[in-house]
């Protein structure tokens, strides 16, 4: 389990303040952020956050273009960047802890975490259990009891299929509740946005989404509610009313790092430009507000620090996937 507390994140990022020199290198042409999912999910939020931060900090003259490349929760985008577009200096791709989990399971094809260049993490999110506002379940406990009674009766939706981080959250909860995780009924979507849509249509009973995209949907007027967040403590602000899974008897934390990588053949200059651009953006005074409005916590890691973090995270996820017998050969 990876636990990222804000305190540790700040400590990790502290030395970077020294490197915040002016951006010597020119901005790459046609900067683009690929959200490797359907619009509306966590990747979308990540790209939009970068877009807003760059604009606010004045790093980019024109707004960062956001494009969508759904397929396998980042798998298609990862493979595309590694094999087809490895040297595009202007392209950054959003990733999340889910991407790292899939990497750990070999779900990104024949690629591993060393095949791309990790640029920056921009914030941390937490897993959340979302149900329609009028759901018959008013707590995570009630829902798990219903699954226990009849696994086929509760349809869980998630971004990504078996083995994805959303599935992993559900499987961990099931294991904590004494339910065979293989008996859960699972519907995979290309990201949390589709799941939220299906949830409102009544096609699934609950979404194993993230706090960020869920609260964004709720703020957007979607009739949804969160049953639990997978954070060690209650989250601040308007999320303070949502109980943690731990409070409800399932001791699970699921932090979700959100960040970006670029292709393996992007030059060091371009890579450094992106690293510094993110550092600049994240130090800008309005950044915390941007994070808060997206219900994210700060987790400013860049460059080698992020590299080390990713390596450690993938190793941890690989162990966890082994526990659930998910690793592909």
């Amino acid at each position: 389990m990876i636990r990222i507390t804000p305190r540790r994140a700040v400590a990790l990022s502290a030395p970077l303040f020294l490197l915040t020199a002016s951006l010597a290198h020119a901005a790459p042409e046609r900067p683009e952020c690929i959200a490797p999912a359907q619009p509306g999910g966590g990747f979308d939020i990540t790209c939009k956050l970068a877009q807003a931060a760059f604009t606010e900090a004045g790093v980019l003259e024109s707004p960062l273009r956001v494009s969508y490349m759904p397929g396998g929760i980042g798998a298609v985008a990862y493979s595309t960047i590694v094999s087809q577009r490895p040297g595009e200096p202007g392209t950054i791709v959003a990733f999340s802890a889910g991407s790292l989990l899939n990497l750990a399971q070999g779900k990104f094809g024949a690629h591993d975490e060393d095949d791309v260049r990790w640029v920056a993490s921009v914030g941390a999110d937490y897993g959340a259990v979302v149900v329609p506002a009028d759901s018959e379940y008013d707590s995570l406990t009630a829902m798990m009891e219903a699954i226990k009674a009849d696994p086929g009766s509760v349809i869980l939706g998630a971004g990504g299929t078996i083995g994805s981080q959303d599935w992993m959250k559900a499987a961990l909860t099931a294991r904590a509740a004494g339910i065979d995780h293989k008996s859960m009924r699972f519907v995979a979507f290309e990201g949390g946005g589709d799941c939220a849509t299906a949830l409102q249509g009544g096609h699934v009973d609950a979404c194993m989404n993230d706090v960020g995209d869920s609260q964004a949907a709720i703020d957007g007027g979607a009739p949804l509610k969160m049953l639990a967040v997978f954070s060690p403590e209650r989250l601040p602000g308007k999320l303070a009313d949502v109980p943690t899974a731990t409070e409800q008897g399932y001791a699970i934390d699921w932090p979700i790092v959100r960040g970006f990588y670029v292709g393996p053949e992007v030059s060091d200059e371009d890579y450094q430009w992106w690293v510094q651009a993110f550092e600049t953006a994240m130090q800008a005074p309005g950044y915390d507000a941007l994070l808060q409005s997206r219900n994210l916590l700060p987790l400013p890691l860049t460059g080698e620090e992020l590299d080390a973090f990713v390596t450690e995270a993938v190793a941890n996820y690989r162990a966890l996937a082994g526990e659930f017998q998910l690793v592909q050969q």
Partner: peptide
């Protein structure tokens, strides 16, 4: 429903 690629990279829909 389930939409998937035969290499298992993409899987959308009822996974089980």
């Amino acid at each position: 429903f389930r939409v998937s690629t035969d290499d298992g990279l993409v899987q959308i829909g009822d996974s089980l």
